[in-house]
Nucleic acid binder design. Structure first.
Lengths: 133, 133
DNA sequence: CTTGACCTTCCGGTAAGTGGAACCATTAGA
DNA sequence: TCTAATGGTTCCACTTACCGGAAGGTCAAG
């Protein structure tokens, strides 16, 4: 398959696929004309990567996950550890964003949003860091 | 004040302050010896920026916010619009992360995490995109 | 006079790609 | 057969918001 076809099939942009090859996640064969020649296993890797990336795993985690995927002697504990670490990162981020959201909501709700210059949002930003959060 | 002192006072690293000058957020005076010489207004700007950045506003938004802050003829509506846009970005991100979290939680909960290779997480990643989310 | 802390600029790197230029290959149509 | 369209190729620059480090200038203290 040409790159356009695996791009279509995997849902990843061709640019991204080339990039993945560049950083060594992939090693597709080459034809005589220099074109990449992707096999079914390459496509499979790419869909694996697409899914893993869509779950927010970093490229480095994807690399490890992929090697575990291809290693029949793996321990599921290793996979789970990566996923749990990622999950707690996500949970941490969510709580950060929730606290951010409350602050922003509060600021926004107190601003009239009219043609006048008075603005509690700017007041907050301008008033150093002596606040309650 | 020297950069180390405003860094201390604003809570921003000196590197960041130089960067902010570089991208035109700031224009501190210079002494004869080439050292930056920060005034009270510079420090005020920096604390404004530190707070705005900590609320997750982009540098570009900070630039706009700062110019509104310094513009006595502003409309609070302009400020509010920026904050609301940011708030909805945050809310959007939160809901994305929540759905991600559910998926990851589900995957993690179904993985034994032992020394055996069987792993529902890898099964999911490897099984194309024919799933329910 | 030297040591150490502080300042300066500049270069490179980060994550994960995206956009574009310049160029080659393949194929369909006039 | 020429040409145009489409789709490959490589390489370089750009993105965000900085951080790390090198090479070197400045300043106060001992």
């Amino acid at each position: 398959m040409n790159i356009g076809q695996v791009a279509e099939a995997s849902g990843l942009p061709a640019k991204t696929i080339r990039y993945y090859e560049d950083i060594g996640l992939l090693n597709p064969a080459r034809r005589a004309n220099g074109y990449r020649d992707f096999g079914g296993d390459d496509l499979h890797k790419l869909t694996f990567l697409a899914r893993a990336r869509s779950l927010g795993f970093s490229i480095d985690e994807c690399r490890t996950l992929l090697s575990l995927y291809e290693n029949r002697a793996r321990s599921s504990a290793d996979v789970k550890a990566i996923a749990e670490a990622h999950l707690s990162r996500v949970e941490h981020k969510i709580s950060e964003l929730n606290s951010l959201k409350r602050t922003l909501r509060d600021l926004v709700d107190h601003c009239r949003g009219d043609e006048r210059p008075e603005c509690p949002i700017l007041d907050d930003l301008g008033r150093g860091s002596d606040r309650a959060n």
